[in-house]
Write a protein that binds this DNA or RNA. Structure first.
Lengths: 129, 129
DNA sequence: CACGATCTTCGACTTATGTCGAATAGGTGG
DNA sequence: CCACCTATTCGACATAAGTCGAAGATCGTG
């Protein structure tokens, strides 16, 4: 039985320490990070994030994204919801359209957590000598 | 029908440009990145990576990891294989044990790709004024 | 060689996920 | 108000994924 990943209660950019610093990560932090990584762990969603990054205002509507990724609008809406509930985009109605806007800080925060800078323990671990 | 993510043919740390630089990411790069993010998108695997980071040699065997994450050894083996096929760990037999060793460059590479530094387009996008 | 320890593979099971078409909701404009 | 456009929700479906116990593979030791 797969461990069901919970919905994030806190949608803001993740704020836990880099993986390498705190020794062992807490279970809560592991879940918080995993949920976000899983949300990004799909080619379609990566492409959507990438596309949003090309926009000057970092935003686009569903009807723009659907043809760009070659999928139906319901499917795109589904993916956008994944990104939304993981805190990577925000949504805003503008007339008939819904503008999804990237939250670059959320992506940047993931980069920060994954920015492990291995502390070479007096002798090095990389040189196997 | 879910798009089946392919097995990575190239296990080395990802080498594509940061998401923000190249305009739109290619489909191949999107897949390569998504596969790796998906491999990290599980609390158990995050904890295992975290645990490996606490080890001076960045390595541990299955029998160490299983009790640490509170799962059966087959399950831990399954997760290790996920990390292995995504290039985040290497395996090596040492007597009766199998040492899984973290590949920190692989994690660091993900951090680099996700390190988006939004180019403020002459007027700023963050201040909504 | 036979036994014990470690690890992986193999089913099996349950739940999650990606995808679509059809139906519904929300908004604009004649 | 009605037609139209956009977006989401709803079923439905096929496949992927996490978990375990049992069985098999690999190695070291007596």
């Amino acid at each position: 039985m797969p461990k069901p990943l919970p919905l994030l209660e806190d949608i803001s950019p993740i704020t836990c320490d880099p993986l390498s610093s705190t020794g062992m990560v807490s279970t809560a932090d592991a879940v918080a990070l995993a949920v976000r990584l899983k949300a990004l762990g799909d080619p379609v969603r990566i492409q959507m994030v990438s596309l949003l990054l090309t926009r000057p205002e970092l935003q686009a509507c569903t009807c723009d994204l659907a043809p760009a990724v070659g999928l139906s609008e319901p499917t795109v809406s589904h993916h956008l919801k994944q990104l939304l509930t993981a805190g990577f985009v925000t949504k805003k109605r503008v007339g008939m359209n819904v503008h999804y806007r990237l939250v670059p800080e959320a992506v940047q925060a993931i980069s920060g957590v994954l920015d492990i800078r291995v502390s070479i323990p007096a002798g090095g671990i990389d040189p196997p000598a």
